[in-house]
Amino acid sequence: MTIGEWYAQRAGQRLGSCGGGSQNIGQCQQLVQLYALEVLGVPGCPAFPVPYARLMMGTRTDYFTTVPNTPSGVPPYGSIVVFNGRVGGGYGHTGVAIEGSDTNVVRIIQQNDPMGSGASIKIYNYNNVMGWLVPKSQAVQPQGDNDVIINDNNNFARANKTHLQIRGRALDRGTFNAFVGKGWLTFIEALSDDQEANDHEAAATLGAVARRDNWQQQIYTLQDQNKVLQGQVDSLAKQVKELQAQIGTQTDDTKLLNGFGEILTKLIIRLGLKGEQK
């Protein structure tokens, strides 16, 4: 039986459980006693053998892990929330955590608040919350409620993978905690409705085209072609330098020959003139 199915059957009723006695019907503790038995399958009559709600903390360690309240803590869906003696006339209060809880408020199924009322859903702040009792094994977890995010490592891993797929980066614990107790659909919608998600989708689309058209191999081919062309350019540059050197040498030789020619011309002229004088 899921929590939703159980609550649908019990809503509005003043609940009691085995071992509670008729005088305790409608007390807050009787609701969680019955929940532990009918939904989680926790044995015992009653499941929590204590007289007051506030005394439930630290009990039934065979089936529950006791988690103290902290500023960043959020009770997992289906855990049992325990309030201290500042409420309930010194007896405390208790209820079953459901979706909608976060670091500011806790949303629970409870009874006897207001006094004499039957099973209902109510939201509280954490001022008087001592902590919560988390079912230890999957065998006693509420079944069929996988649409709700629970504060455990498995759900964080799933949320992180979803975050990577939609946003393209890892999920931090602070963001995850803000969605604990809420539905997976709410989480996915929040991740999708963001420019970062749009940018990641565009990049992923481009990446798909790159893989399909084998851009990586095309880049390698172009790099190889560039190496060949660069070799040809280097070879041509070398030839140009050699030609420039040859031109420089030819220029010096030409100047030398021209100098000899001028000297010979002058000698011939002088010799010719001397011949005419004789």
Score class of each variant (00 low, 15 high):
229 L>N: 04
114 P>V: 03
75 P>K: 00
100 G>N: 08
41 G>R: 04
239 Q>L: 04
13 Q>N: 05
81 V>N: 03
144 G>T: 05
92 G>E: 00
114 P>Q: 04
60 R>D: 12
5 E>H: 07
30 Q>A: 02
262 E>K: 05
91 Y>G: 03
250 Q>P: 06
264 L>D: 04
33 Q>H: 08
144 G>F: 05
174 G>W: 07
65 T>L: 12
276 E>Y: 14
132 W>H: 13
181 G>N: 01
200 H>C: 03
166 I>E: 10
31 L>G: 00
84 N>I: 08
166 I>F: 04
277 Q>G: 00
196 E>S: 07
252 D>E: 11
208 A>K: 15
203 A>V: 04
41 G>W: 13
59 T>C: 06
23 Q>D: 12
217 Q>R: 10
4 G>Y: 07
112 N>V: 02
216 Q>M: 03
18 C>H: 03
89 G>M: 12
65 T>I: 14
215 W>D: 02
251 T>W: 03
87 V>F: 07
277 Q>E: 10
257 L>F: 08
54 R>Q: 11
70 T>H: 06
119 A>L: 10
157 A>K: 09
159 A>D: 13
72 S>D: 14
218 Q>L: 13
140 V>N: 14
57 M>I: 00
120 S>R: 15
97 A>N: 12
54 R>W: 13
259 G>I: 02
68 P>C: 01
147 D>G: 09
197 A>H: 02
258 N>A: 13
222 L>K: 13
269 I>E: 12
21 G>T: 06
136 K>Q: 10
222 L>Q: 08
268 I>Q: 08
214 N>K: 12
198 N>H: 10
165 Q>T: 14
91 Y>S: 02
108 I>E: 00
21 G>M: 04
181 G>Y: 08
114 P>S: 01
50 V>F: 06
163 H>C: 15
144 G>Q: 06
128 N>L: 00
222 L>F: 10
13 Q>W: 07
15 L>H: 01
57 M>G: 01
10 R>Q: 12
205 T>P: 00
199 D>H: 10
247 I>M: 15
110 Q>D: 14
175 T>E: 09
206 L>T: 11
27 Q>Y: 02
278 K>V: 09
86 R>W: 13
200 H>Q: 10
75 P>W: 03
29 Q>E: 04
106 V>S: 05
45 C>K: 12
50 V>I: 13
204 A>F: 11
201 E>Q: 08
4 G>K: 04
268 I>C: 02
240 V>Y: 13
205 T>A: 11
213 D>Q: 07
110 Q>E: 12
1 M>A: 11
83 F>I: 02
224 D>G: 04
5 E>Q: 05
175 T>V: 14
250 Q>I: 05
120 S>G: 10
152 D>P: 14
